[in-house]
């Protein structure tokens, strides 16, 4: 005789084994499986539902305050439906595109007569030179400024 599996026995305790009638029939004849089934039943009956203690005082208040502080206020965003926000964005994008397309452009901007290639190092040297000249001019004027 083929015995029931442990899984069949356990699930049958909850009525969740698919073949309940066949299991019952088997246990009518098989004392070994019946004994095993009874053992599991007794064990499960001895595991009580955990009784939760009294919740902390003002738990509802605490929960509510956390929701109020951390969750967004729907009023700030819900005065207009989401699809309307999408439509507004689409209109703005279209307006920006059309403005770029048809805005009169200043096409005859004249180029400077000489666009000589100047190396960056040279620009730096000129700038430093100008700066040192200005400083020396200031330094020379300083005594006269003090006297006046």
């Amino acid at each position: 005789m083929k015995h029931l599996t442990e899984e069949q026995i356990v699930l049958h305790c909850y009525g969740d084994a698919g073949d309940g009638a066949a299991i019952e029939e088997h246990m009518q004849e098989c004392s070994q499986c019946r004994e095993e089934f009874d053992k599991v039943k007794v064990l499960l009956a001895g595991i009580p539902a955990v009784e939760a203690p009294e919740p902390p005082a003002y738990l509802e208040q605490k929960v509510w305050l956390r929701v109020r502080d951390q969750a967004p206020d729907r009023r700030a965003v819900s005065w207009m439906p989401k699809w309307a926000w999408g439509a507004v964005m689409a209109v703005l994008l279209a307006a920006a595109f059309l403005a770029g397309r048809f805005w009169p452009r200043n096409v005859d901007v004249q180029k400077p007569p000489h666009t000589a290639q100047v190396s960056p190092g040279r620009v730096l040297l000129v700038a430093v030179g100008d700066c040192s000249m200005n400083w020396s001019a200031c330094w020379q004027r300083l005594p006269t400024a003090r006297q006046s």
Partner: peptide, 17 residues
């Protein structure tokens, strides 16, 4: 609540906590 009345959610908190 979905219409923007956040305070209404408090009722659900009190009922199910």
């Amino acid at each position: 609540v979905l219409a923007g009345d956040r305070e209404a959610f408090r009722l659900l908190v009190n009922r199910h906590t």
